[in-house]
Design a protein around this nucleic acid. Structure first.
Lengths: 207, 207
DNA sequence: TTTTAGTTTAACCAACTGGTCAAAAGTAAA
DNA sequence: TTTACTTTTGACCAGTTGGTTAAACTAAAA
């Protein structure tokens, strides 16, 4: 019997996970070094193996933590009871915020996806991440009602994901390439967050 | 004085580059093993170092080769003399084809981008890759003429890139997640190639 | 045939990597 | 203080990695 539900504020385990998240996302599974993670956490390397038996274990712990975040934030909105347009607005703003706070996440996933696609797919399956049925249904309904243009729900979903995720994914590069010509990239992204949802909703409305 | 302009059809050097391209794109710089590249090329590991002095050299050779392809294909279309709408259509179909043939490329770039953003940005700068001025100008003109909606050229460009690149980038994952529900993913992508340009053009036309 | 230059190989090496272990240091109840 | 335990550490190890080297092979030139 334990007294408190385990308050893991700044426990060593949390320190390690935080450091690992940082290093894994910068260097990927293959490029990350256990020593670097230990340094980042300010502890001994052997302690990593005391808490998480192997590098792969540590990696999985980090990864599942991140998948949980996606699950909560991403599918939370898309499966909610909101009407379609509010949902789309909420998705773009909420998801953009979430991605900017975890800007390493998409690159991290793409990185590992290249190394072992099957493994990554299974991880997503295990986490129960799938096309949100509620959203798919809503799109079909709105198409049938004639409120939005004739469009395959899956294509619409892919468009939403593309428009929201890619800019964050390629941000460092876009920043380097565009910033010379255009002013501040962050400002560009702020403007995007405001204008993108309205443009997108407009693009699927019937004329 | 050499007789022929160096016909490097199946020379050892070409064999190595081809093998390296394959392995680097699967595993990334850090994950790739010189031995694996040698095996893939069917040669001895020492021979790699005979042709390309180091792993980094080999990596750069592969990378510049790929950047050249992007430069030719991507900026070739966007900087051409075509009118805006033809250009957009050409971009989506041509770029999608190109990406599907080189489906490892985006992931490869994102991967290395995470490891060392500055390095990647400089590579792109050196290769002269930048927002295509011709396209930017055309968009501004069409906005002014009132032919398309009020939109920042840079946002429009980002939308185009997002919609074209992301699905290829995430293809293995989308395939695994969507395929269970929807039929063939490749069929979905074929449909996308046909419908995306028209939907996109429609989305920027004035109502 | 001999020479010469470029190509290919097996064997080797120093540095690094994930992982282990026994012992030390901390902790809290008895 | 003693005991029993968890946490933390430095030293170490076996396997792997990028890279080297000297010798063998190849074929055209002399």
């Amino acid at each position: 019997m334990e007294e408190v539900p385990k308050h893991k504020e700044n426990s060593t385990e949390e320190l390690i996970l935080k450091a690992a998240k940082l290093v894994f996302s910068r260097k990927g599974m293959a490029g990350a070094r256990m020593q670097e993670i230990a340094d980042e956490a300010g502890i001994n390397k052997a302690l990593l193996h005391y808490y998480f038996r192997s590098k792969e274990n540590l990696f999985n712990a980090v990864f599942y933590d991140l998948l949980g975040n996606i699950q909560k934030k991403f599918l939370g909105i898309l499966n909610s009871e909101m009407d379609l347009f509010s949902k789309i607005r909420n998705f773009f703003t909420g998801y953009t915020d979430f991605l900017q706070e975890n800007s390493f996440l998409p690159g991290f996933i793409i990185n590992e996806l290249n190394q072992d696609p099957e493994k990554m797919i299974n991880h997503f399956r295990d986490a129960g991440i799938k096309p949100p049925p509620k959203l798919i249904l809503q799109i079909k309904e709105e198409v049938q009602k004639g409120n939005i243009i004739q469009i395959d729900p899956m294509q619409l979903l892919m468009n939403m994901l593309s428009l929201a995720i890619f800019p964050v994914l390629a941000a460092p590069l876009l920043k380097g390439i565009l910033e010379a010509k255009e002013g501040d990239f962050d400002q560009l992204m702020e403007k995007r967050k405001r204008e993108l949802p309205e443009w997108f909703i407009n693009s699927i409305m019937k004329k």
